[in-house]
Design a protein around this nucleic acid. Structure first.
Length: 853
RNA sequence: GGGCGUAUAGCUCAGCGGUAGAGCUCUCGGCUUACAACCGAGCGGUCGCAGGUUCGAUCCCUGCUGCGCCCACCA
């Protein structure tokens, strides 16, 4: 052995620990912030939600991004690859409540000595101040972030760990508040008192993007309104909203109801007079074709209410229950007593009671007809959303402005999507927006609005003239900080001030991830080198939120896209092809998978799926991961063999036709793999390289084994060893983005420095080395040795069995190819003699092999 | 209801206007001094269905079907 660094028994065990530590120590992945913009590749890493655990899907998609990052680094780019933690928002709040058994009560004072109980008592949650609550959030996310970082390092992500950020950190809060103030100054942010989608459990407004529909059981109730000429029957799934009814509506062309348009009818039980309108949104074949409009039963009600300029008669409160006070528009004693039966009830209970009342009064026609129908939920919520009129903050997103919408669609077309077809989801979403982005949330743990309001002589806030901080004060918390010209003792007092109690939608902060990570307004030198970034990797489920909102913010703030490329990763599916749920995915944790199979093996599997493609995963039988492990082991063994023949880092003369043919093929592999990576298709690059590598092992290594050991002559040995040197070095570099550990290990046996900073291979120098090389020679050699093997296999003999004579018959041109590799074939196949018989015939024609054992 | 994707071997997936590919599984054989966690050989497919374009279609076009996802006003 000439390479003393090559171990006798190479193993994958322990590679992760060794190289994770080495890379950290060497700063292998440090971002060089002296690099100019054109030499930087900047990645807008998705900040994972730290409350909760990472599942297989996360590790899958982050690996794909890492392969791209590593490729770009080897191309000579300074890769800006920070990691963010999304520790802001509702999931963290909920986790803190569960872990510590506390709840936030903003009215309480800060308790400096508060320590959470060792064992949370979920029955008796301890009320604590907002500041105490936030401190617990920070403590918990700190612990989570350490866990996450350790997993990411084990996976081999080439993140620069000196550049982490938190969405609840000072920098992020300042950036979020600053961007909001800019939006406000430019008129892109505004507040409005309006019907708002409202989650009654969390008691907060939610945005259109956070909705999801779930099928729920309901029932059509056929109910009589008193019309001018007799009963008018409507069908509703929400009879409890009859006291909130403000009109009826039918389609303008519906002949049944045309006599009623403009007339009034009376609501049952409550006797309220409401007008009958026509509107094209009403569907004649839905229910009875005439609907009651309530404020508000659904978003269609909001549309009708706005377009028909109807009055507001809300009966659902912020707690989701029917108002305790009887509303003033219910004037008649019978109406007031009917409402008293419903007051304070949940919609569910109220519905049960009102159905009884309607049955008693005879206004219910027949039995309720059970149906299953889609109902809107907050995606994290457990109860259906209600629509409640509240004052909220909005940011313009094109939902109410055709011009802005068109510009945002245009931004989507500027962006390069991987895969291309994901663009449709973006355009679909933007073109279907029905309102601006609601950014205020009635929560505690988040980025507060940097706003105070003056209080009038009665102590009531004047929302029309907000008090704003100077930007250099940011971040601020208006619940503890005081606006200029006021003192703390004026808080909430007449002629004093009050802080905006709300926090910003968590997306309002994470939509600034390029700005936060890139040092916007905080480190202008850095920002100029990384923005707009090169890549946004993310899941396709959050195109409508994270991707879209980030485009909106950059469009408003910078008049540009936030990045050039978007890479949308696929889902991990259960073996039964259902989207893997978190609970199922955690049956086997990512850490267990990595520890059991090795990080490279897992990465191989992740990088076998192209962007946007879902991948099925069976944790009990991860065959693809095992294939990856085999590849990694093979790299160790084949490298050990090659280096054992005396291969040196500096190659010498390459003279043999077979060797030149191999390098000609390798040049094509490099060209293909490079083109694939340029197209963000790491999977195609991997597949091409892997196929070459296995052929290298199975055929080429076997063919040149004897020659490389020096059994023929020194020139042949030199040529083989030099070819092996070039091929090994090239293949290691081609595989380094996917298999960073095993390639680094082998690289360290015979090369200087890290493979991850080595130059990505180029096809041209290989083609020069292969000058005159013909890949047909390589194929002829493989075909010939295969024929010999088949003969032995058919005879049920060992591959070591001797062959007396190999007779090769075919056209002269093809025979020449075989003749040029005959010596290597004879050595590898233990063939004593080869006979060539030329057959006249046009090429290409079959070559026949007769093997005499 | 609108949009997008997808359909190739038992499984997971490449491919592509010119005689169907890989890995896994399965069968048979082999301890060949890099690797038995290995190696060699083999079995296995009317490329979802129906039309069309073409000298030729798994590939391009149209329609349909299955599956998946996104969007859409809960009457």
């Amino acid at each position: 052995m000439t390479n003393s660094r090559v171990p006798d028994k190479p193993t994958l065990d322990g590679l992760e620990d060794r190289w994770v530590a080495d890379w950290a120590q060497q700063g292998t992945y440090s971002f060089d912030r002296t690099a100019t913009r054109e030499n930087v590749y900047a990645i807008d890493t998705p900040p994972p939600t730290v409350s909760g655990s990472l599942h297989v899907g996360h590790v899958f998609s982050y690996t794909q991004t890492d392969a791209i990052a590593r490729y770009q680094r080897m191309r000579g780019k300074s890769v800006f690859y920070p990691m963010g933690w999304d520790d802001n928002g509702l999931p963290t709040e909920r986790r803190v409540q569960n872990v510590y058994g506390v709840r936030c009560d903003p009215s309480l004072p800060y308790d400096q000595d508060f320590t959470p109980p060792a064992k949370p008592d979920m029955k008796n949650e301890i009320p604590i101040s907002r500041r105490n609550f936030v401190e617990l959030c920070e403590r918990l996310t700190d612990e989570d972030e350490k866990q996450f970082e350790s997993l990411w390092r084990l996976l081999g992500l080439s993140v620069d760990w000196d550049m982490t950020y938190q969405t609840i950190g000072d920098d992020a809060r300042a950036a979020s508040q600053r961007a909001f103030l800019h939006n406000l100054n430019r008129g892109e942010a505004y507040q409005a008192e309006a019907p708002t989608l409202w989650d009654v459990t969390f008691q907060t407004a939610v945005a259109q993007a956070e909705l999801e529909e779930r099928d729920r059981d309901g029932a059509y109730h056929r109910i009589a309104f008193a019309g001018p000429t007799g009963p008018v029957y409507i069908e509703t799934t929400r009879p409890e909203l009859i006291p909130a009814c403000v009109a009826l509506v039918a389609h303008p062309d519906d002949e049944r109801y045309q006599p009623l348009f403009g007339k009034t009818v009376r609501t049952p039980l409550f006797g309220v007079e409401v007008q009958v309108y026509s509107h094209p949104l009403a569907e004649p074949d839905k229910g009875s074709g005439i609907a009651m409009i309530c404020t508000f039963g659904d978003t269609t009600d909001v549309t009708w209410w706005r377009e028909l300029a109807l009055p507001t008669r809300s009966v659902i409160g912020r707690d989701g229950r029917l108002l305790g006070e009887t509303p003033p528009w219910l004037e008649q004693p019978a109406a007031r007593s009917a409402y008293a039966e419903l007051a304070g009830k949940t919609p569910f209970s109220a519905q049960q009671r009102i159905v009884e009342l309607l049955a008693e009064s005879g206004d219910l026609d027949g039995e309720p007809r059970k149906i299953s129908h889609p109902v809107k939920f907050y995606e994290r919520g457990t109860k259906p959303l209600e629509i409640v009129t509240t004052r909220q903050w909005y940011i313009r997103n094109g939902g109410r402005d055709v011009g802005l919408r068109r510009q945002l669609v245009e931004r989507g077309r500027e962006l390069v999507w991987h895969p291309e077809h994901m663009r449709h989801r973006y355009e679909n979403w933007v073109e279907g927006l029905t309102g601006d982005w609601l950014v205020s949330r009635q929560r505690f743990f988040g980025v507060p609005f940097p706003i105070w309001y003056r209080c009038d002589a009665d102590g009531e806030p004047d929302y029309n003239q907000p008090l704003l901080p100077d930007e250099d004060q940011l971040p601020i918390d208006p619940s503890t900080d005081v606006p200029a010209g006021y003192t703390e003792d004026q808080r909430g007092k007449a002629a004093g001030f009050i802080g905006d109690p709300d926090v910003l939608d968590t997306w309002a902060t994470s939509s600034l991830s390029p700005q936060i990570a890139g040092g916007w307004e905080r480190d202008p030198d850095l920002f100029a080198r990384v923005f707009p970034m090169d890549l946004r990797p993310q899941g396709h489920d959050i195109i409508r939120t994270w991707l879209f909102y980030t485009v909106v913010r950059a469009h408003h703030e910078h008049g540009s896209l936030p990045w050039k490329n978007a890479a949308l990763s696929g889902w991990i599916l259960d073996p039964d092809r259902k989207k893997m749920s978190k609970s199922k995915g955690n049956v086997v944790t990512p850490r267990e998978l990595l520890e059991r199979h090795g990080s490279d093996a897992f990465r191989y599997w992740a990088c076998s799926s192209r962007l946007g493609m879902d991948a099925a995963f069976d944790p009990r039988n991860p065959t693809e991961i095992k294939v990856g492990r085999r590849l990694a082991v093979k790299i160790l063994n084949a490298s050990r063999f090659a280096l054992g023949t005396g291969v040196r880092a500096q190659p010498g003369a390459i003279t043999e036709p077979l060797d030149k043919a191999l390098l000609a093929e390798l040049a094509a592999v490099v060209a293909d793999a490079t083109a694939a990576y340029e197209d963000y298709n790491y999977a195609a690059a991997l597949e091409r390289t892997e196929t070459f590598f296995w052929a290298l092992c199975d055929d080429y290594l076997e063919l040149v084994k004897a020659r490389a050991y020096g059994e023929r002559d020194s020139q042949g040995a030199e040529s083989a060893r030099s070819t092996l040197s070039v091929a090994l070095s090239t293949v290691l570099r081609l595989l380094a983005p996917v298999l960073p550990f095993v390639t680094e290990e082998v690289w360290s046996w015979w090369q200087e420095g890290t493979v991850h900073r080595a130059q990505w291979p180029a096809a041209e120098p290989l083609a020069e080395l292969a000058a005159g090389g013909d890949v047909a020679v390589l194929r002829a050699a493989a075909e010939t040795i295969a024929a010999v093997r088949k003969a032995k296999s058919d005879a049920k003999l060992s591959m070591r069995a001797d062959v007396a004579t190999l007779r090769v018959t075919g056209p002269a041109g093809r025979l020449d190819l075989v003749r040029s590799v005959a010596a290597d074939v004879q050595a590898a196949g233990r063939v004593a003699s080869v006979e060539f018989t030329a057959e006249p015939g046009s090429e290409p024609a079959e070559v026949r092999y007769d093997v005499a054992l």
